[in-house]
Amino acid sequence: MHQIFDEKEIKRAISRISHEIIEKNKGVNQIVLVGIKTRGIEISKRIQKNLEELEEVSVPLFELDPSFFRDDNKRTDTLDPMNFMGKITEKDVILVDDVIYTGRTVRAALDALMLKDRPKTVQLVALVDRGHRELPIRGDYIGKNIPTSREEKVVVYLRPHEEEDAIYIDN
C-alpha cells in the first residue's frame, strides 16, 4: 500500500472543509451533520468539533447506515427506516463520508434522508473523491481528489477504528 495522506494532511483537510462549510452556509445555525457509517461518522465528529470551536454553537450530529437503501443490497431485516436519526426538516444537511466513488452509497443516503424528512438543502463532504461516478453526484467539500483506476482501492484509516489516521492506495 502507498500512503497518500498522513495524519497532519487529514487534519488540515478537515479543518479546511470546516471553514468552507461555515463560509458557504454563513454560519452553522441551520446545519445538521449526518455521518455515513463508519468513517463518515468519525469525520463528522471532527468537523462538528471544529465548527463548535470556531462558531461557539452546538451543531447536531446524526449517524446514518444507508445500507438498507442500497439498490445492490437485498436486506430482509426489520430496520425501521423512519427511526434512524433526529429531525432534519428545513435544515441544511451536511452529509459526510470518507470516500466517494460510484455515488451509490450517497444515493442510498439521500433516499434515507428524503424518506425521513424534508431537508432545506443537502451538501456532501468526502475526504477523498476517487472518481468513477456511475450517478450524477458530486461533492461540495472534498479533502482531496485522487484519480484511481477501478482496480485500486482507497483505504482510509481513522482513530479510534484503526491505530493511525492515514489514507492509502492499495493496488
Rank of each mutant, 00 (worst) to 15 (best):
R159K: 15
S58K: 15
K91Y: 06
D92T: 13
R133F: 02
G143M: 06
L158R: 11
I169G: 08
T38Q: 09
V93E: 02
L33C: 10
V34D: 02
D92P: 01
M1P: 14
R12C: 15
F84A: 05
E23Y: 08
D98E: 12
K45H: 15
V99E: 07
E53K: 15
G103S: 03
V34E: 01
H132W: 09
S44M: 03
Q30L: 12
T38A: 04
R39Q: 09
L115V: 06
I169K: 04
I137N: 01
D72M: 04
L110F: 01
P66H: 02
L115R: 14
L95E: 00
R104N: 03
I94D: 04
G139K: 09
I41F: 10
L33K: 09
P119Y: 01
V34M: 10
V57G: 06
V156I: 11
S58H: 09
D72K: 00
I94A: 09
R159D: 15
Y157Q: 15
I4V: 08
P136D: 01
T105A: 00
Q123N: 02
I167L: 08
Q3P: 10
I4W: 02
A112N: 07
I36N: 00
I167R: 11
I41G: 08
T89A: 12
L64F: 00
D6H: 15
F69V: 08
N83S: 07
I47E: 06
E56G: 11
D117S: 14
Q30I: 13
E56R: 12
Y157T: 15
V96E: 02
R75S: 07
N83F: 06
D129W: 05
V28H: 00
I14P: 13
D170P: 01
D170C: 09
E9K: 11
E20M: 02
P136M: 05
I17F: 06
R107P: 14
D92I: 13
M1G: 14
G86W: 01
H161I: 14
F84R: 06
S149I: 00
D65I: 08
S149H: 08
R138Q: 12
K45D: 07
I4F: 08
M1E: 12
V34A: 03
A109N: 00
L158Y: 02
E63W: 09
F5I: 04
S149Q: 10
E9W: 07
V93Q: 12
K153D: 02
I17S: 04
